[in-house]
Design a protein around this nucleic acid. Structure first.
Lengths: 342, 342
DNA sequence: TCGCTGAATGTTAACGCTAACAATCCAGGG
DNA sequence: CCCTGGATTGTTAGCGTTAACATTCAGCGA
């Protein structure tokens, strides 16, 4: 006959410090001291306590801890659409760094980019009493919604502009756009067209600015900006329009996804890349090297952005909180076939 | 201009229920009753309390609440690499659904797929006393690491196999693979090659199984499986090998990213898709429609997976916890140019 | 030998909230 | 006009932890 399935005998309630102490004839405070690495605990007492903790499967109650210490050991992250490559990688970097620092990460994803939605997300995190907030805040107007950063609730904004008095981390978008534009000019284009992201995105405008600056510096004509949504569909649309237009020699597309759509449209229209038109994107998603043709783009080190954000946030969270700072990370031009004049 | 979130001018310490009560000459318990929608509070008292709460900028202290109610209002999500499309969208779906249900989401991202790492991630969430855990657990062996699901800590596994006694949510991978294989055969291929994901991924094996089943059912020869890593690089490698091989009529690639790499390799080798070889992927990432050629694939409704996970988890979390259940969502074949015999 | 010192441990009081029980109030029936 | 009972509000006691202060004990120098 088969043995009955063994079941954990689910204790009525979890063990507490007092329970651990009782089995040893100690006070709960000694257990607390062991857990908090207090210096004056005899080594053998420490060992016995640790053993008892193990035996009873004791875990500290974070709520009780948070109640008395006033620290939740949790930081909140507000993000938009995490299916985009940038936010997703940034989040991963944040989580990793937070983990190393002994913090938990609570996320609030804003479904749309409305200011209201962001406010709600932040509100929810505050309700949860996070110790600090990282806002992946790519829109104009987002910064204004943020609670004024304070000692008690530091805020770091990521991939946004840098607002005075706010701590921010970002990749230098203007520089990235300049470098890639320069590269396209160097490859022989007399000017460069630009398919930008939505005008309410800070990064989109920064890339436009960098692109424009470089064209002007080179004395090149500045064509009208085409607007997209970051999504491949919009790149495709832009591509169709540009394919119909004569004299387009090079296109700098605001991100890789749109660049993919544009390549598709060019392909359908019989416009060859790079033979007829040079193309470059922005982000360096993992797929970019495998587009047809492989895409020249500007790499952003998102994991580093995540790490940096946590560093700066914790600097402020921890006693003697540091002053707000701006971290600007360098972009990296990655040249592939799509931009190389054959 | 949007109003910034209201912040007190940094009082020494945040207002408590007692503070709110005091300004009204009430007891803190009445305030608590208002906040918890207790029926017997006079309407005008309720209004006054609400007003005072507003005025003082009072917020409930979740730690104190959690301490006494023994509920953290938080659910934990363990995920691998969130830069992959599937996990990222699933996470977004989870967060959204959790939010609607009044729960917070805490994430633990496992950097690698080692069983140890997963165990750590789960451990961290338990330490945080989450009320339930959703594990995006795509690997064989992960299920074994999970704490035995109990009333006190329900677990839902996602995109994994279904283990008896565990609640799970997944898209029917076998069916998806069968349908797409069938489609390729219907398009005239005498057999279909398969580039699979890593053998330790449950989904990879399920897709292999579905593919094999359909080939056998059709009496077609079953070629050797090629192994990839889900990344475009590995699809590229597989593509190069298949391009050298004569008689390849159709390839079912385990995911869209690898399919992109394979398309690239075919392109470089002068193998035309769909003229020479039919190709299909799996997932339907947003870019798939813009690959060259547009990719036939199997769509998985990840947001729905996320929603479903939360539903099933909360069913168990809430009083009168339901029995474990399996939810299996249907996949959807999306036919595009890459698989259509011209 | 005595008292002093510091190490080790114990005791007590919050932290801010909810739950259980107690008290009060008012309307309506006898 | 008192009594009863439901509606409303108040009081008290934890929840499990850390911080502050108290106590104990051994060892050491005078």
């Amino acid at each position: 006959m088969p043995e009955p399935i063994k079941t954990m005998s689910e204790p009525i309630r979890a063990a507490t410090m007092a329970d651990v102490a009782r089995t040893l004839g100690l006070s709960h405070q000694t257990v607390s001291r062991v857990l908090n690495d207090h210096p004056s605990v005899r080594p053998d007492t420490r060992a016995r306590v640790l053993k008892a903790i193990e035996d009873l499967g004791y875990r500290r109650n974070p709520a009780a801890r948070a109640l008395v210490t006033r620290r939740s050991q949790t930081i909140g992250v507000v993000s938009f659409d995490t299916t985009l490559y940038g936010p997703a990688s940034t989040l991963a970097g944040i989580e990793h760094a937070a983990q190393n620092a002994g913090y938990f990460v609570s996320v609030a994803i804003a479904k749309d980019v409305a200011v209201e939605t962001v406010r709600d997300a932040i509100e929810r995190l505050i309700t949860q009493s996070v110790e600090g907030i990282i806002v992946i805040a790519p829109l104009f107007g987002t910064v204004e919604v943020l609670p004024p950063p304070s000692r008690s609730l530091p805020v770091v904004i990521v991939e946004s502009g840098s607002a005075p008095g706010l701590t921010s981390v970002r990749v230098d978008q203007v520089e990235g756009a300049r470098v890639v534009t320069r590269h396209l000019l160097d490859e022989g284009a007399s000017t460069v067209w630009h398919v930008a992201g939505p005008a309410n995105w800070i990064e989109a405008e920064a890339r436009v600015a960098g692109w424009r600056t470089e064209l002007e510096r080179a004395g090149a004509r500045v064509p009208a900006v085409l607007r997209g949504t970051w999504r491949p569909e919009s790149g495709y649309e832009a591509g169709r329009r540009l394919a119909r237009r004569a004299g387009v020699e090079a296109v700098f597309v605001g991100n890789d996804q749109m660049a993919l759509g544009l390549l598709r449209a060019f392909h359908e229209a019989g416009v060859r890349v790079p033979e007829d038109v040079l193309v470059a994107g922005f982000d360096d998603v993992p797929e970019a090297a495998f587009y047809t043709p492989p895409l020249t783009t500007v790499r952003q080190d998102f994991p580093a952005v995540g790490r940096r954000s946590i560093d700066l946030l914790l600097d402020q969270v921890r006693p003697g909180g540091a002053a707000p700072r701006q971290a600007i990370l360098p972009p990296e031009l990655v040249v592939r076939q799509s931009s190389l004049r054959p």
